[in-house]
Design a protein around this nucleic acid. Sequence first.
DNA 1: TGTACATCAGTGAACGCGCGTTCACTGATGTAC
DNA 2: TGTACATCAGTGAACGCGCGTTCACTGATGTAC
Lengths: 197, 197
Amino acid sequence: MRYPDTHKAETRERIIGMAATSFREKGNFGQGIAGLMSNLGLTIGGFYKHFSSKDELYVEALTRGFEETARQAAAVAASAPDGLKLQAIIKWYLSSGHLNDTGNGCVLAALGPEIGRLQPELQGKINRSMQRYVDSLLPLMPGNSPDEQRMNFFILIPGMAGALMTARAIAAPRMRSKILRAAREFYLHAFAGKTAR
Amino acid sequence: MRYPDTHKAETRERIIGMAATSFREKGNFGQGIAGLMSNLGLTIGGFYKHFSSKDELYVEALTRGFEETARQAAAVAASAPDGLKLQAIIKWYLSSGHLNDTGNGCVLAALGPEIGRLQPELQGKINRSMQRYVDSLLPLMPGNSPDEQRMNFFILIPGMAGALMTARAIAAPRMRSKILRAAREFYLHAFAGKTAR
DNA sequence: TGTACATCAGTGAACGCGCGTTCACTGATGTAC
DNA sequence: TGTACATCAGTGAACGCGCGTTCACTGATGTAC
């Protein structure tokens, strides 16, 4: 064979990785396959050796996006001292770094409404990825039981995603960071005790 | 003239009204002009007698969407007794009615990320509409000064928008309403005192 | 060892399709004289 | 009053373009004998 045995799998991974970023940055309809492939130094024809359709890649890419963000969150928590882990996560999620790096940030904040519009089959697959996202972040959530932690996840993460998405919708830099700061203080106060930032 | 003097303006209004709903339901790229016009019993050719481009309509439609939602919120507040107005607004925003009527609901929850991806000029115009949305809801927000009310707007509304958007991204009806209920209780508690729902 | 063939990731032109936009036209009514 | 012309909201075919998808091909390497 022309390429090592692992080559095809590696190319597939590269496509998914690039798509995970590009779709979050530009949306499903904003990023075409030809452009995606050429950003990897490949041509469009090869795409269908890896995926049966753009939809299939879209699902894979969003799954990857959720996984990456979960990994980032875990790393943030790991490098924070006990008792300050949740605070660290809130500060990271509502940081200007996250605000300005849509392509590597939370999928919910980047593509939330788009997911709700997908045909049921695709939505179902993405829902399963979201489920794994929830599960992997659960240990980092406040609460005295998995149920309580799950509820807190679904209050905290969507709330912060909404703040991020709204800040991104606003062009004026001042206003952007004002919104982010307000949300940060609010969620820190509400979830991580009265500890001032 | 073939039509009464007001006819053209009325048609324009009808197009904007339909677009305000359709864009929120399907997104900018999900709703084409030909389909929009035919939903109004019109044909595509006439569109450019009213708007110079789809982008122009998109801006008008989102502006209309913000106005409609602001009007709904004002009506909800008006029909609630003093002291329970904010609670009424939170319950209305996080109701299953709002959840299931994306086309007539908050623009932020329906199109937030899309707005952030627009070219600066369009984004600027929509930001001005958002500004009027904020201003008109300001009197309904908690706080002891306009500044405080503004900050509370930017915590409460994006937070609820994120909850709505996340619930809509999830297909399972049980899970959807669970998320909505959790958010409702949280924001009621955080913003409208400890009054149980 | 040498030769013919099989494999297969990647190529790039071509396809059909739907989109936003343009444009010559329609036809009902108002206006000029 | 009657006739010729102007107006203009709306029509629908046509345009160019970019997209997702298909397909015959390439060429480096592995395999059979």
